[in-house]
Design a binder for these strands. Structure first.
Lengths: 232, 232
DNA sequence: GAAATGGTTTGACTTAAGTCAATACTGAAG
DNA sequence: CTTCAGTATTGACTTAAGTCAAACCATTTC
C-alpha cells in the first residue's frame, strides 16, 4: 500500500502527487478480518477512513441490541468524515466520538485512517478540496434522505426497491439476474428488519411469481410487478 | 426587510456588509400564510431559503398519503441548501428538484429565497464561507443521524425524548413545564406516528404519573422516570 | 351568541412484523 | 469424506401501532 491508492478517491481528484503523499504520510493503514471493528460509536474521533480493499458496514445498535445497517462502503469510498467539521466548529473541543459503528464484512479488508487535524489544515488552505468535500457531504445527505424515505415503507416495498436497484446496477440485460453479495442477515439489517421477515418476504415474492431464488442469485421473473411494488 | 436580516444567519457571519447586500440583491422575499407551500418535492430547484419570521416545516409524504415531518426551521435557520452542491457536481445539469416539501406553519411567515447560481459563484471565490457551509452541512448530517436513531425507537421513547429535550430548552428551572408550540397533529407527524397513538401515549404518561397536561402545557411530574424511558 | 371549523380524544378492531423455538441447509475445516 | 459452525427457513404466537368511526373540545367566523 502506498499513496497511489489515494488517486482513486474521487474527493482527492484535485490534489497533486505531492499533496497525496503528504496525506498518506499522516495516515495509518489497517488490515481487518471479517467481523473486526474499525471503530465503536463510543470511541474518540481520530479521523476519517478510506476503504482500500474489502467492504465496511456502517451501523447502529438499537436499544434492544438489534443492528441497523446504514450503508456499506466499498473500495475508494470514505466514511466518518462528518465529525471533522463539527469538531472545528466548536469552541470547546470536548471529546468527540464517532456517530456510528464500522465493521469489516469481508476477510482481508484494508482501510486507511486519515488523521483529522492535519487533513483539516489542508482543507483550510485548499479551496478546491473544500468544495469537493461539500459535494461529498451533499451526496451523503442525499443518501440519508433516500434512506429515511425507504424506512417509511413496509418491508415488501423495501425489498422490491433493493432488488430493482441491484438489477439496474448489474446492467441493461434482459435477463434480470441479481447476485446478493451480502449475507441475508446483513440484508435484513440493511432493510431494517429481521432474518425471519426477510425470508418470508422473499418466499412470498417467489410464490407470487415475481422472482426465483437459487443460492445467492435471484432471477427476477416479473419485473413489472416488482417495479409496481417498489414504486407504490 | 433588507439585507440586515442576513446578519443573523450564522452561516454568513464571515461576510461583510457589501457581500451581504450582494446576496440580498439576488434574493427574493416571500410572505406566506399558515399552511401555504414554499415548494413541493417535485419542483425544479431554484435556490435555498432563510426563514426571517414564523416557522417552516420540512416534510415528506408517504405512499399512503401520510405526512412525515423531518424538521422545523425557525428564524435565521436555512433549508434546501443541499441540491446546490450536487447540482454543481453533475456534468449534465438535468432538472434538479427539491428533496422534500416545505410549508409555513404560522401566519405571517417570511422567507428569503437565495438563488443558487450566484450564491455558488460567491462560494467558489470565498474560502471562508465554503468552510462555514461544511459546518452547516455537517450539522444537518448530525441531525439526520439522530433522526434515524430516534426512528428506531417506539413511540413512548420518541415522545419521552421530545419532552426531555423541550424541557432542557426551556431552562434549568426545577419546575419542568413545557409548552407544546406546534399542533398535536404536527407533533405526531414529527414523531412518525398518528394523532390517535400520540394521544394515547400522552394519556398513558399522565395515568402513570409522569406528566400532567393542561391545554398546550405539559408539566413533567416525574423527570427521572421520563429520562429512563427516553434513554433506554 | 350560534354555527362552523379545526383540532383532539376514545373505543373497537386489524395488521405488519416482531419473538421464540425448532428445523434445515450450506460451506468451511479437519 | 464427515463434522461442525454459520446461515437461513418455517411455524406458532404476540405486540405495537395503525385504521376506522364517532364523540368531544376549543377556536374562529358570521
Amino acid at each position: 500500500m502506498d499513496s497511489s491508492v489515494l488517486r482513486n478517491v474521487s474527493m482527492f481528484s484535485v490534489l497533486n502527487d505531492k499533496e497525496l503523499s503528504k496525506i498518506y504520510s499522516f495516515s495509518t493503514p489497517k488490515s481487518l478480518d471479517k467481523g473486526e471493528m474499525v471503530f465503536f460509536e463510543t470511541e474518540p474521533y481520530l479521523g476519517f477512513y478510506v476503504v482500500v480493499e474489502g467492504c465496511i458496514k456502517i451501523f447502529k445498535i438499537k436499544g434492544d441490541g438489534r443492528e441497523q445497517i446504514i450503508h456499506f462502503v466499498h473500495p475508494y469510498g470514505t466514511f466518518a468524515e462528518v465529525p471533522m467539521f463539527e469538531q472545528y466548529e466548536k469552541i470547546l473541543n470536548d471529546q468527540f466520538t464517532y456517530p456510528a459503528n464500522a465493521m469489516a464484512t469481508e476477510k482481508d479488508t484494508k482501510v486507511l485512517l486519515i488523521r483529522s487535524g492535519l487533513f483539516y489544515e489542508l482543507l483550510r488552505k485548499n479551496h478546491e478540496i473544500s468544495l469537493k468535500m461539500l459535494g461529498a457531504l451533499s451526496k451523503r445527505l442525499r443518501h440519508l434522505n433516500n434512506y429515511i424515505e425507504t424506512r417509511m415503507k413496509d418491508i415488501p416495498h423495501r425489498l422490491a426497491e433493493f432488488l430493482v436497484q441491484e438489477c439496474r446496477r448489474s446492467g441493461g440485460s434482459d435477463i434480470h439476474k441479481v447476485e446478493i453479495e451480502i449475507t441475508k442477515h446483513d440484508l435484513a439489517s440493511y432493510l431494517g428488519t429481521i432474518d425471519e421477515t426477510l425470508s418470508r418476504t422473499f418466499k412470498k415474492f417467489q410464490d407470487d411469481g415475481l422472482i426465483q431464488m437459487k443460492g445467492k442469485f435471484v432471477t427476477i421473473t416479473d419485473i413489472k410487478k416488482l417495479l409496481r411494488i417498489a414504486e407504490e
